[in-house]
C-alpha cells in the first residue's frame, strides 16, 4: 500500500505547526498515489486528545503513543518508535519536520533503517519509484534538486515550505506502545534552559521583528519588543552580532548558523543584511527594513525599506501599527 507516514512533532503535549505542515505535504503525496496518511503522535499522557487536530489536517490514521517519559523529546526512544513503525508498515514516504527536533530525529531513524535521508526539503514530487525533492544548499545560495531512490523514502521538510491545509478526515486512532523506555537513553538531560516559554517560537510566529547592532545597546531591544507587542503575533529575533555580544540569547539568532525562518512579515531593525543573516530569512513573504544607511544590503531584499534612525522610526511604527490594529 502506498501510504505516507508523518512523524508529527509535539511540544508541551501539543502538535506543532510544523507537524501540520508535514501533514499537508503528506496529504498531497497520498492523494497522488492513492494512499492513506498515517501520523505518529507521541507525547505525555493526554496526547490522545490531540489526535483530532491531526485528523482535521489530513491524517487517516493516528498512531498514538503516550508515555510520561515523552514529555520532553527523547532521541533514542523516539528513533526506536519511528523505526519500528516504518518496519511494520509498507510506507512509500516517511516525512519528518526539519525543525531542531526533527533534524536530530530523522538521520538517527534513517540510519536505524540502514536507509538514507533527504533533509530540509522545500518540495517533493513522486517520480516513478524515486522521489524528486528540492533542497537549499551553500547557505541558501544554490537550490539543489535531488533524486532519492529506495522505499521507503525518508525526507524532512523545511518549516514554512508547506502550507497548513485543513482537510477533515475521520482519522481512526491506534494505540502504540513505546518499544524502548525513555529512561534507558544514554544521554541524560540534566537541565533545560528555556527562554520565556510564553513567547511565540520563531519558527511559528507569523511576524518576526529582528534587531541588529544598529540598536547599539541591549536595553534598546525594548524598541523591538514593543513593536512585536504592537503586532500581537510577533516573535523577536536577532543577528549574530547581537547574540555574540550577549544582548540576546543564542536561541534568538536568525541566519546560516541560527534559525531559518519564513514568516509572513519580517521586520529588520538596524540590521545590515550580511549574507549569513539573509540565509536565514530571505524566504520570508514580506520583508521590511529600517536602517540609516541607504546602501545597506538589507534594502536589496526588502519589499519596503525606510532609510532612517531606528530610534525615531521604530517608536513611530509601533504607535502606527497599534493604531491600525485597533481600528481593524
Amino acid at each position: 500500500m502506498p501510504n505516507i507516514l508523518v512523524v508529527a512533532e509535539t511540544r508541551g503535549g501539543e502538535p506543532r505547526k510544523v507537524a501540520l505542515e508535514a501533514l499537508a505535504a503528506a496529504r498531497s503525496l497520498a492523494d497522488q498515489v492513492g494512499g492513506a496518511v498515517h501520523a505518529i503522535l507521541a507525547g505525555p499522557p493526554g496526547m490522545a486528545a490531540k489526535a483530532a487536530t491531526l485528523g482535521a489536517h489530513g491524517a487517516d490514521v493516528v498512531a498514538i503513543t503516550e508515555h510520561a517519559g515523552l514529555a520532553n523529546y527523547d532521541a533514542e526512544s523516539m528513533a526506536a518508535l519511528v523505526a519500528a513503525r516504518v518496519q511494520g508498515g509498507e510506507y512509500r514516504v516517511v516525512i519528518f519536520s526539519a525543525s531542531a527536533q526533527g533534524k536530530d530525529l530523522a538521520p538517527r531513524t534513517a540510519a536505524k533503517l540502514r536507509s538514507t535521508l533527504a533533509g530540509d526539503v522545500t518540495s517533493i514530487v513522486i517520480d516513478g519509484d524515486a522521489l524528486v525533492v528540492t533542497h537549499p544548499g551553500y547557505t541558501g545560495k544554490v537550490i539543489q534538486t535531488l533524486r532519492l531512490s529506495g522505499t521507503p523514502a525518508l525526507v524532512s521538510v523545511r518549516p514554512g515550505a508547506f502550507t497548513v491545509t485543513p482537510v477533515a478526515k475521520a482519522g481512526t486512532v491506534e494505540q502504540v506502545a513505546l518499544p524502548s523506555e525513555p529512561g534507558a537513553s544514554r544521554v541524560v538531560t540534566t537541565e533545560t534552559v528555556l527562554g520565556d516559554t510564553r513567547k511565540l517560537d520563531l519558527g511559528e510566529a507569523p511576524v518576526i521583528v529582528s534587531g541588529g547592532r544598529g540598536l547599539k545597546a541591549p536595553e534598546h531591544f525594548k524598541l523591538v519588543e514593543d513593536l512585536a507587542a504592537a503586532f500581537g503575533n510577533a516573535a523577536v529575533g536577532a543577528t549574530r552580532a547581537v547574540t555574540d555580544e550577549g544582548w540576546r540569547p543564542h536561541s534568538d539568532q536568525i541566519g546560516q548558523t541560527g534559525r531559518l525562518v519564513s514568516p509572513d512579515l519580517y521586520v529588520a531593525v538596524g540590521i545590515s543584511g550580511a549574507i549569513q543573516h539573509l540565509a536565514g530569512m530571505r524566504t520570508s513573504r514580506c520583508i521590511v527594513a529600517i536602517n540609516k544607511d541607504k546602501e545597506a544590503p538589507i534594502f536589496k531584499v526588502a519589499d519596503y525599506g525606510i532609510v532612517g534612525d531606528v530610534f525615531e522610526v521604530v517608536p513611530a511604527l509601533t504607535a502606527a501599527v497599534a493604531e491600525a490594529r485597533k481600528s481593524h
Binding site: K141, Q144, R147, I287, K294, F299, D303, Y304, I306
Partner: peptide
C-alpha cells in the same frame, strides 16, 4: 541512493524598494 540531478541559483527576490 541520493544524488544531485540539478543545481540552480534561487529566483532573485524582486528588487527592494525604499519607500
Amino acid at each position: 541512493r541520493l544524488t544531485v540531478v540539478k543545481m540552480e541559483l534561487p529566483a532573485a527576490r524582486a528588487a527592494g524598494r525604499i519607500i
